[in-house]
């Protein structure tokens, strides 16, 4: 079986992001980028599925964007992906555009399973997975915290607001993953070195015949600063007194 894992590069979550002067982007100069943490979990799960099948699966990581994707795709190869592919595209893309591009890549690659993060931690939109599933008319399971594959059937535990829901769905399917599914491995030095030798396949977005029509347009970005000034209290009595006097909640 083949498993497709789309990955997005995002600013390192430990970094403080700043809005750039154009107020349409965040400042990326000197900003370290990483594989979106949820996508790394998806890739880890794909590799574990291959391992559980004694290697009888091919894991393909796909990035959509510019030349800079090479770094994150090599990270994917170093973690254990079999192949990496970048769809070159210089225009800005929203989740709908990315889903349409991925739909074409699914057509080319014919995977049995697409595994991806439930959201990217830059825009926090959480749309690409279900959009892709709807375009393919494949079943979907979002927010997976447990995935079991038996033959052509997946059993997925989903983290919902009300508890863990279980779904059973046939392949092919799109599954988006949540935090507690697994802990992604670190790539070993030998595998990082080996990944440097591997070819990254290039596809020009124009080959795919996807019309890029923006659905969601960012007009303005603003940094958010905390307006609060913390008042330190010295003990529980003072805390309760001030809460009662100043907030009227208690």
């Amino acid at each position: 079986m083949k498993i497709l894992v789309p990955i997005k590069r995002v600013p390192d979550t430990d970094q403080r992001v700043r809005v750039a002067d154009d107020m349409l982007h965040v400042e990326t100069a000197d900003m370290p980028f990483v594989v979106n943490p949820f996508d790394a979990i998806a890739l880890e799960e794909a590799i574990r599925i291959r391992e559980a099948r004694s290697g009888d699966a091919e894991v393909v990581v796909i990035g959509v964007g510019g030349e800079e994707y090479e770094q994150e795709l090599r990270t994917g190869l170093a973690m254990g992906a079999d192949r990496a592919c970048v769809v070159r595209c210089d225009t800005e893309l929203d989740p709908w555009n990315v889903a349409c591009i991925l739909q074409q890549m699914v057509g080319r690659e014919s995977p049995a399973l697409v595994l991806m993060g439930k959201q990217a931690v830059d825009d926090d939109l959480g749309q690409t997975g279900p959009f892709l599933a709807s375009l393919l008319q494949w079943p979907q399971a979002t927010f997976a915290s447990r995935i079991e594959l038996q033959g052509e059937m997946l059993t997925v535990g989903r983290e919902t607001d009300r508890g863990i829901e279980t779904l059973t769905l046939p392949l092919p399917a799109v599954v988006t993953v949540d935090l507690r599914l697994n802990e992604p491995r670190y790539a070993s030095l030998p595998s990082i070195l080996k990944a440097r030798q591997k070819q990254i396949e290039h596809v020009d977005v124009r080959e795919l015949g996807v019309e890029i029509q923006p659905r969601l347009q960012v007009l303005k970005m603003e940094s958010v600063f905390s307006q609060r000034r913390c008042q330190r209290v010295s003990n529980v009595d003072e805390l309760l007194e001030r809460l009662k006097a100043e907030t009227k909640i208690l």
């Binding site: 709908w96 439930k118 926090d124 997975g129 279900p130 989903r158 607001d161």
Partner: peptide, 22 residues
């Protein structure tokens, strides 16, 4: 909610992908 993030995003996909979340 996780309900809308699952069900409604797919519906928006069926309808042409015009969506803003959160």
């Amino acid at each position: 909610t996780t309900y809308a993030k699952d069900v409604l995003v797919r519906a928006a996909g069926l309808l042409g992908g015009t969506m803003a979340t959160e």
